[in-house]
Amino acid sequence: MEERVPQHVQNIVIRDYCSKKDMQYLLSSTEYAMKNSALMLRQLVKNLPSIDGIVAYSIFQMPEDDVERQSIFNSVLLLKKEIHFAVEGLYLYDNDTYNNIENIWQVKKTLPNCNFLEIVKN
């Protein structure tokens, strides 16, 4: 969602996060560059039974579409796995963390409608 950080920088941040959390970094996966693509993410979720979880660079790399994003989060929870977000230092593993991360997403999507300068201009 309007976030763009070079891939090699994302990898450094993810590796550093794994190292600090004492997690084994298995394999890097890169999403296709097409707008709103979540093909690779869905594949990763499909492969989740064989690994402990996913570490993404940021919460805001998840699908912007609520239904699709929530469906991915629900799949993670159903499989009793975890999805981590390195930049934010947050991870989703139960209903509370699901709600927390969804709240952040909804606030982020609402903020463009709370533009202070726009209010002043009007």
Binding site: F60, N100, I104, V107, L111, C114, N115
Partner: peptide, 20 residues
């Protein structure tokens, strides 16, 4: 304020909602 403008310190990576 949760719905006030953010600058470099963003929602999610620096701030979290606490009283939505």
């Amino acid at each position: 304020g949760l719905f006030t403008p953010y600058k470099d310190k963003k929602i999610g990576e620096f701030f979290e909602p606490i009283t939505l």
